[in-house]
Write a protein that binds this DNA or RNA. Sequence first.
DNA 1: CCTCCACAGGAAGCGCAGGAGT
DNA 2: ACTCCTGCGCTTCCTGTGGAGG
Length: 419
Amino acid sequence: MGNRGVEIFFLVNYYGWNILFEDEENNTLDNIFDRALHGKKIVRNQTVLNSDYIPNKLPFREKQISLIGQSLAPILKGNKCSNLILYGKTGTGKTVVARYVTEKLFERANNNDLKIRVAYSNTRMSNTGYRILLDLANAIGLNIPFTGLSIAEVLQRITNVISKNKYLVIFVLDEIDYFIKIHEDNLLYELTRSYDKFKPGSLVVVGISNDLNFKEFLNPRVLSSLSEEEIVFSPYSAEEIKSILQDRASIAFEEGTISQAAINLCSALAGSEHGDARRAVDLLRIAGEVAERENASKLEEKHIRSAVQKIERDRIYDALNSLPIQAKALLIAVTNSNPNSKTGDIYEKYQKVCIKIGLEPLTQRRVSSILSELDLLGVISASVISDGRYGRTKKITCSVSQQIIREIYSKDQVLSILY
DNA sequence: CCTCCACAGGAAGCGCAGGAGT
DNA sequence: ACTCCTGCGCTTCCTGTGGAGG
């Protein structure tokens, strides 16, 4: 307490009283604090709207829950259970159902003194074999340096801990398709077929895939052991999304502060396309923030609409700002070129940009890869086409308006000299 | 039907960073 | 101090290819 007093005293002396009490900026700050203290509150419980929130009940997923439960139940008796794959598009509840079931299982096992450990790894975040094993090691309380050991060594240590402590491990591998497409599946093979290796402990792999066709990328020997059981998550219907939103909204928002029309619009905008519940809930959360900032007493349709815009704007802004400098230069080269330019043309423009900002240009091969990455990000669209006699190339068009890119990059230290 | 363009994209390998083990 | 390990961004070298024009 004493320390804080000293800090405030220091600030006041440093900036002078006039700034604290007369400056206009400070009035706006006061307003913000006032609103936080006395303003109308719409959101009662925000955690319900967070993406990692696990509800007490998961409507429309009873079938999947019981199927997963049946597959994993033998572990409670220390028996071997089958490896699983959960399929379904984004926002169909795969992750949340997997977490829900494993959590319940964990509780039950604790009551019965079973040493169950649940490990979770998102292979998009932990995008190397090493990091996936790191996640697994953490879950079983094993300390592994984040670099320096060979994969085999890490695997060996994990195996030792599991079998020594007789751990029954459930390893959830989220977005497993992402990993398989980039890496080989050797690691998966090691993990899935190694039943004997972990004895007297055991390890079950629960794979979660957004891509229904990802099996094509799998080696047959892995396929047979990994996909012993497959569970499909179909997209939510618009009605189901509406019901989910209503459930969440009734907990998250103060009574009477959200209109039915707003919920309808939210589920229509986010849900109808692919039945993506996560997007719908995200939208509701952002809209709630927007409404509170406006000091509105009720969440209405206009808040949902500005939330949609805000999400899109933030997405582009983040994507463009977090790019490495070479990719930024390349993107500027794309905006300086005509739509449907060829890789070669873009490369020439890119070299010019590099000279202007004093950057060593990369090779065309590398630039080609970066163009593909930018395409994946949705910043540009690049499609491979063949122009017969005139060769085979990518046709590249910028997906973000030149104005937005200018707006963002004119504030960049290095790139601002271009504008 | 064949040729040949202008690349795509795979494979290998390099140098560096960051760390472990001895 | 030294060796060994992996990941990362990159280069070099390479083979593959759809289809317009001859």
